[in-house]
Design a protein around this nucleic acid. Sequence first.
DNA 1: CAAGATTGAACTATCAATCTTC
DNA 2: GAAGATTGATAGTTCAATCTTG
Lengths: 156, 156
Amino acid sequence: LNANSSPANDERFAGHLRAWRALFEAHAAVVGLLDAELRHAENVPLTWYDVLLHLAEAPERALRMGELADAVVISKSGLTKLVDRLEEARLVERRPSRSDRRVIEVALTEEGLTRLRAAWQTHRRGIELRFARHVTAEEARVLERALTKVRDAARS
Amino acid sequence: LNANSSPANDERFAGHLRAWRALFEAHAAVVGLLDAELRHAENVPLTWYDVLLHLAEAPERALRMGELADAVVISKSGLTKLVDRLEEARLVERRPSRSDRRVIEVALTEEGLTRLRAAWQTHRRGIELRFARHVTAEEARVLERALTKVRDAARS
DNA sequence: CAAGATTGAACTATCAATCTTC
DNA sequence: GAAGATTGATAGTTCAATCTTG
């Protein structure tokens, strides 16, 4: 398959490629399970969970639409419709900003926080069962360090 | 946020949780970039690439629909329509099996192989740039080992 | 009846164009 | 004119129901 590469290049790159494929496949398999568990147990898809979590961790439990779109890595217009659904479910509220009338702030409601806490119990158990159980403490340290570098580079 | 957990449990789990979030976020950021690069350079979305690659690696460069659906982690019906598009683009062909007339085999065409090779050049460079460059050889070994365990457990 | 694959309906995400405010 | 956000058209994904063959 590989046309223009020297044996030396292949050798250097092969380990990284296997690591990338392992990451790609492990992510797909685990996320599929976690998403299904959250949907069935709490009726909260993983995309919802991700938004609620970022709001809960923000000061005042609120973020501007743009900040939220960056945090959860979804397109701006995709977020608009996701927040529509979350607002209809009463888990978040939209509030226009007084200082800049172009911006909308999205705030977590009490019901949203309650729902997030319930979902967290399910999600925590899923992460333990599908991920943590199969990874040693040392491996977890390496994963965090390496993948934080990767993420930061990709976002810049 | 965390209601029913002892400090000891938190301590044990916290590192794994940070590792999981790093994996989740790195995956989203990198896959977004790789997919965009493949689309723009070769007009091959990452989902197409994944299917073509699995076919290229299979004996005879062909797989049954069900085998392919498992390999790429997509629903059976999702794959049906994905293969529709790939067939329309002449990158794969459907062939009924003679031994069991329920099964359809999907085979990579010559054009599909050519296109995959071109896409591989783009993709390889993307993986080098967005992932490999930021990961040491030792980290790559740990990633591969840990995430292969995670993947296999999640698939069973 | 079970396995392999497809179809149609409902849902979700994405891109370009638009609207409002700075 | 540029930034923040939304809208409408489009494309892709999923679930349940269906069709065919074993």
